[in-house]
Simulated scan of single mutants.
Amino acid sequence: MSSAGRGSMLAQPLQRPSAGRIAAYVGLFVLGAVVGLAGSLVQAGWFPGGLLLALVGAAGLFLGGARAVGGRAGAVAPAVGWVITVIGLSTGRPEGDFLFGAGGGSYLFLLGGMALAVICATLAPGRQPGGDAARLAK
């Protein structure tokens, strides 16, 4: 039976992701955390070029993850790792130590990275159902 006869993709039963897909999501999550850590260090060191480099690197990872996995979840997984890492690094410690300065570049990095994560997850192609292409008047 073709996919056109079974109804829309939303009406299909939910399938469990394969072990390889889960491993890809975990790997993208860890890569997002690494890019967030590296961007946190670079953005203040070489301002404004470091800020642009950090944001372009994050956007590349988000879009690359979506293309590699073939769906929006490929952009969301590294974005979640990036956001958790950057927010965790932006909080102050009881000893008074902190990684981010109080300048505008830190806020641009934090808010710009979050905006890029949303944009990349929105623009990423959604997963398409397999099977023959269905066309009207066929």
Rank of each mutant, 00 (worst) to 15 (best):
102 A>P: 06
99 L>K: 05
87 I>Q: 11
41 L>P: 03
40 S>W: 09
73 A>G: 14
101 G>W: 07
110 L>K: 01
53 L>Q: 10
95 E>S: 15
72 R>Y: 05
107 Y>S: 13
47 F>S: 11
64 G>S: 08
50 G>Q: 10
112 G>T: 03
79 A>Q: 03
74 G>A: 06
92 G>Q: 13
88 G>Q: 00
51 L>I: 11
48 P>N: 14
83 V>P: 03
38 A>I: 15
91 T>W: 08
58 A>W: 00
76 V>A: 10
58 A>S: 09
52 L>Q: 07
55 L>N: 08
117 A>T: 02
101 G>I: 07
100 F>P: 02
34 V>Q: 01
100 F>K: 00
48 P>Y: 13
60 G>F: 00
41 L>D: 04
81 G>F: 05
54 A>T: 09
41 L>S: 08
102 A>I: 11
95 E>C: 09
50 G>D: 02
113 G>W: 00
86 V>Y: 03
73 A>I: 15
44 A>H: 12
89 L>Q: 01
35 V>A: 00
113 G>S: 06
78 P>D: 05
114 M>N: 03
109 F>E: 07
83 V>H: 03
67 R>E: 06
80 V>Y: 02
48 P>Q: 08
88 G>S: 04
62 F>L: 05
83 V>F: 06
78 P>Y: 05
53 L>E: 01
99 L>P: 03
63 L>I: 11
56 V>K: 06
108 L>P: 02
35 V>L: 04
62 F>K: 01
82 W>Y: 06
69 V>L: 13
49 G>P: 05
103 G>V: 10
43 Q>M: 08
69 V>F: 06
49 G>R: 13
46 W>Q: 10
98 F>W: 14
37 L>G: 04
45 G>V: 05
84 I>A: 11
56 V>L: 12
43 Q>Y: 01
84 I>W: 15
44 A>S: 15
64 G>H: 12
94 P>T: 11
100 F>H: 06
106 S>Q: 14
35 V>E: 01
66 A>L: 09
51 L>Q: 12
61 L>Q: 04
90 S>N: 13
110 L>Q: 06
99 L>W: 07
51 L>E: 10
115 A>E: 00
98 F>E: 10
74 G>K: 02
114 M>V: 03
51 L>R: 09
64 G>I: 08
79 A>M: 08
43 Q>R: 13
